[in-house]
Amino acid sequence: MKETEKLLEIRHLHKDYGEGTILEDVSLDIHKGEVVVLIGPSGCGKSTFLRCINGLEPIQSGEIFLDGENIIANKTKWSEVRQKIGMVFQSYDLFPHMTVLDNILLGPTKVQRRDKKEATAEAEKLLERVGLLDRKDAYPRQLSGGQKQRVAIVRALIMKPEIMLFDEVTAALDPEMVREVLDVMLELAKSGSTMMIVTHEMQFARAVADKIVFLDGGEIVETGAPEDFFNSPKTERASRFLHTFTFDQVK
């Protein structure tokens, strides 16, 4: 494991909706360049966890430090924090009234007030990297799910975030499109991006992760290197969860 500075520190995060507790005393460190994959059964709170980090969900207690700065404070400028945290959603959520290029340029030009020419040049470079340069003037509805998701990744990347959050980005895709999106993410991981990924693709998790975090019932049950976690989970809950992905021979 890389021993570099901590980029994101989460301390005793607690989140509930009225009655039900969603996240209970969750603590986690993410180092620069690290790829952390969150796995766990549906409803275990993985997605909520990501949303809390990006300030889309209020939390009841706990602290989140980004670059050593507590972002759970009343005076937090979320707009600034979110520029450092890129997020990609399950349902792509491109802006349907804008072309691919305009979708990507909205952040750099309106939030970062960057020069439009410079931003366009970078957008085109990034689009080329994900193999979509020829679709830059298309509207989202003219793209396939996999293409939309790759554009969404570029839209987040162009902000030059310090960390990228991926919330089940392949869950809504047709099987044959999953690969093209995962390949983009693998390439990002290889180039040293810091990433937090929520996914149900176990093979992918194994390939991309530096660290696997297994969440169940709103708490972190097990953390480990991918090989250790998938080959010999330490907890019974984790092994039971992993078992749901294998099938016993019928005949």
């Binding site: 707009s79 520029q83 959520d93 802006f95 952040g107 939030v111």
Partner: peptide, 8 residues
């Protein structure tokens, strides 16, 4: 949320 997440 998508808009917020790119810092708008």
């Amino acid at each position: 949320e998508s808009g917020l997440s790119i810092g708008l």
